[in-house]
Design a protein around this nucleic acid. Structure first.
Length: 646
RNA sequence: GCCGAUGUAGCUCAGUUGGCCAGAGCAGCUGAUUUGUAAUCUGCAGGUCGGGGGUUCGAAUCCCUUCAUCGGCUCCA
């Protein structure tokens, strides 16, 4: 007998070799139908694997990521089986579960292509196999055995993977006629896979290496119930409606023109207004926090970037330098503000007493992003960073860093960005030549970040290899409508540029000392930030950011004069207001202006004209009753104040 | 940059296997209506069918090329 301990602490004895599935069945047959994977002593396992020793057992239902993972991983195998049936000789790369569903990278063979038009046929085949209730059978094999199998199949991708595995750790899973190299775990059988949707095909380099062959990646998602799939597809549709590219066009916030150039955003008046509200807001906060605002040109001498290291690192993949006609001097479009800021620092001597020095600029930079990478406002070739550099003494670094974490969290809170993640990006220890600076500086900087984030109790994930070339960083990431993660705020510790630019200050010992530099943004870029803001709010921007706060809707033409009077009062009170004096019915005017996401609709008719009031309708919420005009002005101002003062 | 897909009016989309002057709804402009909390009615106008080249008696439709967009991959100072 073995002793099984459940998550709630209860213990129960079972006969040796019982499987997790059998245990679940014994507890209740209903439970057995709902579990998809099990953790045995913290290790995720197939439900069908026997347990031979005393163990802690956790059964995973759909709500656990482990369960979905097993479900989708099994679905990937199911898809592979269908592919092999339809395309004999097809070769397989990797086919993992992902956050929402799964994919499989395949090589259909020369002259054969799989396109979206082929997906329904593959789906149908999958449904056919799933209905056969095929078991997933695990088999541990030797390296040679695995090698022989896939060599005989002529699958060079699998054999490459096997060659890197250690003997004794290799397992195969068989379902139907399909055998795959796989660590597992899997569902006991294909039976629970009821609803299947293949969502897209895309190219993906083998092993993520652009020098290697491009495989065809097929994405899909499956569920145990059709209703769950339907709900997911509805969610995707809704997400599309929140897409900032769509809303930006609808609400006339920004546009792009092929004549101007791809990836070069054109801010329309309303979008420009939103952007300016954000800039004004942040500027006010920065001044309170002791930042000095500076302004620098959009180009800089190529030597500037040779000093900073940007030219060596990015010169070849940048917009190429332009030269002056007479002297042939070379200038680059500014890809970053930091070199300029270093030279501002160098313009005057500094004493240890005046540090930290906080220098901020809404600086527009230009980067050559690959054409395939451009994406609405989130990835562009010209963007304005809310950039700042803190120059401080080494002993001030930690406090300075923490104060920036506070600033970012404060701004995110005001904007209701609660769903962000914090990521510590370190140097890739195996690829040190990608970075500038000494090991000592890097280790110091990485420790600085880790301990500052620790002091702030910030929940972080640590990702090696994601650092900037001059230093490690703490990134704040937010998701867009379809779940893609974008970096907004970032805080970067840098010991290297101060050396390259020979930045110094006089210490209390009257000696020259080297300051440390912190690079930071809160919004990241105005472009990306507005994009994420639009998607988070579905275009219903908070009152303080809305380019138009209210629109007056006269019941009929008879009240246009009164409406114009109010319009003047509101606009004179700095409340940007419109009037909709079309001779339409009030229902139509309400509908149209609701769709424009204007925060307040002010309906005026006979009653209101008589007593100097407006009938207030809040966007998305409906009728709020009537208010005197002065009352409404005060109301709006206090609402705005509430929004931006936590 | 790479793989795949898409491109018809300001927007959302129709346009069968190539065949009469390329259609609809919304938006716009006319005119009527004067309206009380999410769509009043009439009429009009609007398109080199992304650009260029080709095949054909004939191309929105087929082929080539180019530009742009979309989904991924790679990249992201």
């Amino acid at each position: 007998m073995i002793k099984i301990t459940f998550p709630d602490g209860t213990k129960k004895e079972y006969k040796k070799g019982i499987s997790s599935l059998e245990i679940a069945e014994e507890i209740s047959p209903k439970l057995a139908k709902e579990v998809y994977a099990a953790s045995v002593n913290g290790e995720i396992r197939d439900l069908s694997r026997p347990i031979d020793t005393d163990a802690n057992l956790k059964l995973h239902k759909w709500d656990d990521e482990e369960a979905r993972h097993a479900f989708w991983h099994s679905s990937a195998h199911l898809m592979a089986e269908a592919l092999e049936a339809i395309y004999p000789g097809i070769k397989f790369g990797i086919g993992p579960a992902i956050e929402n569903g799964f994919y499989y990278d395949v090589d259909p063979g020369d002259g054969r292509a799989i396109t979206e038009a082929d997906l329904p046929a593959i789906e149908n085949k999958m449904k056919e196999f799933a209905a056969q209730n095929q078991s997933f059978i695990r088999k541990d094999v030797s390296k040679k055995e695995a090698m022989d199998l896939f060599t005989s199949k002529g699958d060079e991708y699998k054999t490459e993977l096997i060659s890197e595995l250690e003997d004794g750790t290799i397992s195969l899973y068989t379902s139907g006629n399909f055998v795959d190299l796989c660590r597992g775990p899997h569902l006991p059988s294909t039976e629970p896979i009821k609803a299947i949707k293949l969502t897209s095909v895309a190219g993906a380099y083998w092993r993520g290496d652009e020098k290697r062959r491009m495989l065809t990646r097929i994405y899909g998602i499956t569920y145990p119930k059709q209703k769950m799939l339907d709900e997911y597809l509805v969610f995707l549709e809704e997400a599309k409606r929140r897409d900032h590219r769509r809303i930006g066009k609808e609400l006339e916030l920004f546009t792009f023109s092929p004549k101007v150039g791809m990836g070069l955003p054109l801010w329309l008046p309303k979008g420009s207004d939103v952007r300016q509200h954000l800039i004004d807001f942040l500027t006010k906060i920065l001044k309170k926090r002791g930042y000095k605002i500076v302004t620098t040109p959009h180009i800089g001498n190529v030597n500037l970037y040779k000093v900073s290291g940007h030219f060596e690192k990015y010169g070849a993949s940048s917009f190429q330098p332009m030269s002056t006609p007479q002297e042939g001097e070379q200038f680059m479009l500014k890809p970053m503000n930091c070199p300029h800021h270093c030279e501002i620092y160098n313009a005057t001597p500094h004493s240890y007493k005046e540090l930290p020095l906080r220098m901020a600029e809404f600086g527009t930079v230009y980067r050559y992003e690959q054409s395939g990478e451009l994406h609405g406002l989130t990835r562009v070739r010209s963007f304005t960073q809310d950039d700042a550099h803190h120059f401080c003494r080494p002993d001030q670094l930690r406090e300075e860093f923490k104060s920036i974490i506070d600033l970012i969290l404060y701004i995110f809170k005001i904007l209701n960005f609660n769903d962000f993640t914090a990521q510590i990006s370190l140097r890739d220890p195996d690829n040190k030549e990608k970075y500038i600076g000494t090991d000592e500086n890097w280790e110091r900087a990485e420790q600085d970040i880790i301990s500052a984030a620790g002091d702030k109790n910030l929940k972080t994930t640590v990702v090696p290899g994601e650092a900037a070339f001059y230093g490690p960083k703490l990134d704040f990431m937010v998701r867009d409508a379809i779940g893609r993660k974008w970096q907004l705020g970032t805080i970067q510790v840098d010991y290297n540029l101060p050396e390259r630019f020979d930045l110094t200050y006089n210490g209390s010992d009257n000696q020259k000392h080297r300051p440390v530099m912190i690079h930071r943004t809160v919004f990241g870029s105005m472009e990306r930030f507005v994009a994420v803001l639009i998607e988070n709010t579905a275009g219903k921007l908070p009152l303080w950011l809305a380019p138009e706060k209210a629109v007056i809707l006269p019941i009929s033409d008879k009240f246009n004069d009164y409406a114009l009077k109010i319009l003047e009062i509101l606009n004179n009170s700095d409340i940007c207001t419109l009037i909709d004096d079309r001779s339409e019915k009030i229902g139509k005017k309400i509908r149209d202006n609701e769709l424009k996401r204007i925060p307040y609709l002010l309906i005026v008719g006979e009653k209101e004209a008589e007593n100097g009031s407006v009938s207030v309708r809040k966007q998305g919420e409906g009728d709020k009753g009537s208010m005197k005009i002065e009352e409404f002005v005060n109301f709006i101002n206090s609402e705005i104040k509430k929004e931006i003062e936590i």
